[in-house]
Nucleic acid binder design. Structure first.
Lengths: 200, 200
DNA sequence: CCAACAATGTAGGCGATGACAACAAAGATG
DNA sequence: CATCTTTGTTGTCATCGCCTACATTGTTGG
């Protein structure tokens, strides 16, 4: 029998991993520090060394979430072809997939109660959204999108994606409708965001 | 001194009112049945007569929320002029205002964990959204929006509004940016949803 | 009119939780 | 290797949700 060493070695990571799983399967509400400790095979007081309180654990989850979201968006961006519109569709699909598979995590990431002060989180978020800004930039350079601050242009698109995710996880929209809805939203966004300079 | 009567009279309503307040001020997480009971001046077991468990209270709050949302949208719709675009702007603004002032409530209303089964809630939601469908219908009749199932057409707009609300409550978007963002989103939606039939 | 009965509130208890403090074990450091 | 720091452990406390037994009030039919 393998006696557990007194020191776990990487409790923090183990807790985060277990937490991420519970979060995905049962939601944030169900996440209990004590149960997590049990899952990892450690006493109920141990997590406190790594996360002062429950909220700290949730914040850490959110931060890790932004990291993973950023990676997935990056992969989508790179794997899609060079074409702007196709790229936008692929990246949007990746975002929606993340949002739906890890709905509770996304909620943690954005439902910022008080943790707006945690600059760490904000930084992580910025990094994740860099891909989106890049995408908008490409669209503008290719003349597919109107000029202007990419952040402002992208915000509407981003909001729409976030909203679609909310509608799906809220049960308003069935899973079968997702693809159609996303395509529809992007189509509309592109149509509505083209260079508005109309010849006389 | 006014002795509290054994029977409160309208405990259910009192609880809902107190809960709505706490929800707005401190979020759903902080909502405790026992504290609510104390606030209302009743024993900790009393709420159970009206709400079998905590979730039931939350569901009731959500249902009431849909009712109020519906009213506010209706008022906005009626108060706006006859013009379609202006109406859309006013109604959208009303929705966003609700979403921001009662962010936690909106989350309850849409973050439907398991309560998708409560047909009551779904019905309340449908009633609230009737106004939006009416609005879309008007847009289509006036030729400002493409034809098609109003529900499908409106879904993208609805998602966008929901997303904007999420971005604001999540702290991604500052309050000063809201009006601009909403205007931008609607502008884009209208531009992207006009009759697409282009003459040869 | 009043005797069941139903509805509504109260009191106490149970198991679980998050937060905290005192203590123990293992590492790191000089 | 002696000390200091990090990391876990154990026990405690207040609170919570939920449950059961009981008390009080309102209602209703004979």
């Amino acid at each position: 029998m393998t006696e557990r060493p007194y020191h776990h070695g990487n409790l923090r990571t183990a807790l985060l991993t277990a937490a991420e799983r519970t979060l995905r399967e049962r939601g944030a509400q169900e996440l209990s520090l004590r149960e997590l400790a049990r899952d990892v095979g450690v006493s109920h007081g141990a997590p406190r060394r790594h996360f002062p309180d429950r909220q700290a654990l949730l914040d850490a989850l959110a931060e890790a979430g932004f990291g993973r979201l950023g990676s997935e968006l990056r992969v989508a961006f790179d794997d899609a072809g060079e074409g702007f519109e196709e790229r936008m569709r692929v990246v949007a699909a990746a975002y929606i997939r993340f949002a739906i598979e890890d709905a509770a995590l996304l909620e943690l990431m954005f439902t910022g109660k008080e943790h707006e002060q945690t600059g760490v989180l904000h930084a992580a978020a910025e990094r994740a959204f860099a891909v989106l800004l890049e995408l908008i930039g490409q669209g503008q350079r290719e003349g597919a999108l109107e000029e202007g601050d990419p952040e402002r242009v992208g915000l509407v698109l981003f909001a729409t994606m976030q909203g679609i995710a909310a509608l799906v996880t809220g049960g308003i929209v069935a899973r079968e409708q997702i693809d159609e809805l996303v395509a529809d939203a992007i189509e509309r966004f592109l149509r509505g965001s083209r260079q508005a300079r109309q010849p006389a």
